[in-house]
């Protein structure tokens, strides 16, 4: 994505040539990413694609092997100290013997300009169990307490690593409602998720990571189109899923009896080869792929290579 100078300089997040190695593992392998203030960006990718590492480096929790990171033109540590950044970490823990109010109160007390604990708790929807200990809360409730601590500094940038992971359907709905209310005030949000529906519903922009690199970057619609992913469904009697997966252009095979669904990067080529190899194929249907198929196509290209 082409960015103008002003956007880069005033960017909420700017990652340039970011590389992070752990021993011999290239967790992040050259990520460039600029996020303008006010954008709501979803970071997608399979496990091990480098999402959490990117977020750790972005927040100054680990130092990059090479590359530059700035948040609002400052170093991550400066931005965090100034209370510009709120984060909900996957691996950040809360203390079980503290109450919700004490925990949120602590975070609210350490920031220079902060929301009151009561306000942070209200916005995150945890006020009704403020007096309870963290240890007595459900996984989803704990996630919302983390959200409250992330809101405590009234940050301009909110970074969320798999925020809804332990939540039930209702909790998830309430969480995103709160997140939306926050984003609607012109604040920037970057969230990592593996729920594609969340990216589709809540993000302005999707950044897809694969093997530590940006595989795709654009709006949900753009990415769906760019992947040109299609799904062929058909009945192919007497042919195994393993055989079908060798058809060129097919990246994934789902089968139930004779009925199969082939996720394709090149559906035209796959269809020609399918019919040439297995003339008995019938009930053939080709449909456009949603973000999910695009995700699959884009993230498995590397594996096919």
């Amino acid at each position: 994505m082409q960015q103008t100078d002003t956007v880069v300089r005033g960017a909420a997040v700017s990652l340039q040539g970011l590389v992070k190695h752990y021993g011999g593992v290239r967790a992040v392998d050259g990520v460039d990413l600029t996020i303008a203030p006010g954008e709501v960006v979803a970071l997608l990718g399979p496990n091990g694609a480098g999402k959490s590492t990117t977020i750790d480096v972005l927040l100054g929790l680990s130092t990059p092997t090479s590359g530059a990171v700035t948040l609002f033109g400052r170093s991550p540590r400066e931005a965090v100290s100034a209370g510009l950044v709120g984060a909900m970490l996957q691996s950040g823990g809360l203390l079980e013997d503290a109450t919700v109010a004490e925990t949120v109160g602590l975070f609210s007390a350490v920031y220079p300009k902060s929301l009151s604990a009561a306000e942070a708790m209200r916005r995150a929807g945890v006020a009704e169990f403020a007096k309870r200990r963290i240890g007595s809360l459900s996984g989803g409730q704990r996630q919302r307490v983390r959200f409250a601590t992330a809101l405590a500094s009234d940050p301009d940038l909110l970074v969320l690593d798999e925020p809804t992971v332990a939540m039930d359907v209702e909790g998830r709905r309430e969480f995103w409602a709160a997140m939306r209310a926050y984003a609607s005030t012109g604040r920037t949000v970057l969230f990592a998720t593996h729920y594609l529906a969340e990216a589709e519903d809540y993000a302005d922009r999707v950044v897809l990571l694969r093997s530590g690199r940006v595989a795709a970057d654009g709006s949900v619609a753009e990415i769906g189109a760019r992947a040109a992913g299609r799904v062929i469904s058909a009945r192919v009697p007497g042919v195994s899923a393993a055989e079908l997966s060798t058809v060129a252009g097919v990246v994934d095979v789902q089968s139930r009896g004779d009925a199969v669904e082939l996720s394709c990067v090149d559906s035209d080529g796959a269809l020609r080869e399918l019919l040439a190899r297995y003339p008995q194929a019938m009930d053939i249907e080709v449909r456009g792929a949603g973000l999910e198929a695009a995700f699959l196509a884009l993230t498995s290209e590397g594996a096919a290579r």
Partner: peptide
């Protein structure tokens, strides 16, 4: 114990 549950990571996200 606090380090083990990731509390210190959480605290590093503050100006403390």
């Amino acid at each position: 114990v606090e380090r083990q549950v990731g509390w210190n990571r959480q605290l590093r996200m503050t100006p403390l």
